[in-house]
């Protein structure tokens, strides 16, 4: 069952076309990885899935993105509500310069999800879900920026799941982390995929091979001007028997 269906999505920054005819079905409660060389529009595509590109002036979208069958770009779609259903984790850990507690509580607070009593429960559950609880439970009033980068990134993931989204988008979530912190985040993604649909952009082939269920290969189109998905399939097949020679070249490290 596909959680998100993308139909012939094209994206423009002003007159410049960045994505051309991207189509993909993103299966529910699985991890879908987007791989491909730099500048082929992976992050742009990811940001189309929760309309984070809307803030850019001159941004324009063609095609459809269906979340549970509803077009998120429909005229009457509620962007703020959409983003509470489709959360996002960024490349660099970016906690607010506030306490650990306030960071996690931010989403529930602005969405009016929790009274003060249940807020503490939400914070604890979110921190437990990312295995940060035991490390920080005595220091919830501590500044979030005093944590290590790996902890900060897990905190950012906890901040997203505190609002109980259905989909989590991750834009190279491990690129600023050391290998051990990276493995922790990957294990975490694996666990979270039991409850959440996850889409991750990664430059790390091993990571995509290890951590994803589905893998989508993105490339620039032949005129080199915009990006598109050239092949989608189960990760195991993409990394062992890709059908497109460009995918094979990329995953085996011959170019890209």
């Amino acid at each position: 069952m596909d959680k998100i269906t993308v139909e012939r999505l094209s994206f423009f920054y002003g007159a410049k076309r960045a994505l051309t005819d991207v189509s993909i079905g993103i299966p529910e409660r699985q991890i879908t990885a987007l791989i491909g060389p730099s500048g082929c529009g992976k992050s742009t595509f990811l940001r189309c899935l929760n309309r984070m590109n809307d803030t850019i002036r001159g941004a324009r979208v063609e095609g459809r993105v269906l979340l549970d069958g509803q077009d998120i770009y429909a005229a009457d779609a509620d962007v703020v509500a959409l983003r509470s259903r489709v959360g996002m984790v960024f490349q660099r850990p970016n906690p607010f310069p506030q306490t650990i507690f306030d960071n996690i509580a931010f989403g529930p607070r602005v969405l009016g999800l929790a009274s003060n009593g249940s807020l503490a429960d939400t914070v604890e559950r979110s921190l437990r879900d990312v295995h940060l609880w035991d490390e920080v439970k005595d220091n919830l009033k501590q500044d979030a920026l005093s944590l290590s980068l790996g902890q900060q990134q897990r905190l950012c993931i906890a901040r997203v799941i505190a609002v109980k989204p259905e989909v989590i988008l991750m834009d190279e979530p491990c690129s600023a982390l050391d290998p051990i912190a990276t493995l922790k985040v990957e294990d975490l993604m694996r666990e979270l995929s039991q409850n959440y649909t996850i889409v991750i952009v990664t430059h790390n082939m091993q990571q995509a091979a290890r951590a994803s269920d589905m893998t989508a290969m993105m490339m620039l189109t032949d005129d080199k001007k915009s990006g598109t998905i050239i092949e989608v399939g189960p990760a195991r097949r993409i990394f062992t028997r890709p059908s497109d020679p460009r995918t094979e070249g990329y995953v085996t490290g011959r170019y890209g």
């Binding site: 960024f90 607010f96 989403g107 602005v110 969405l111």
Partner: peptide
């Protein structure tokens, strides 16, 4: 990025500014 993060968990623009 603080504004972006606020939006990415479902905050309105004003909430991002306010909090």
């Amino acid at each position: 990025e603080f504004r972006t993060v606020s939006a990415s968990v479902g905050g309105t623009r004003w909430q991002g500014i306010r909090y």
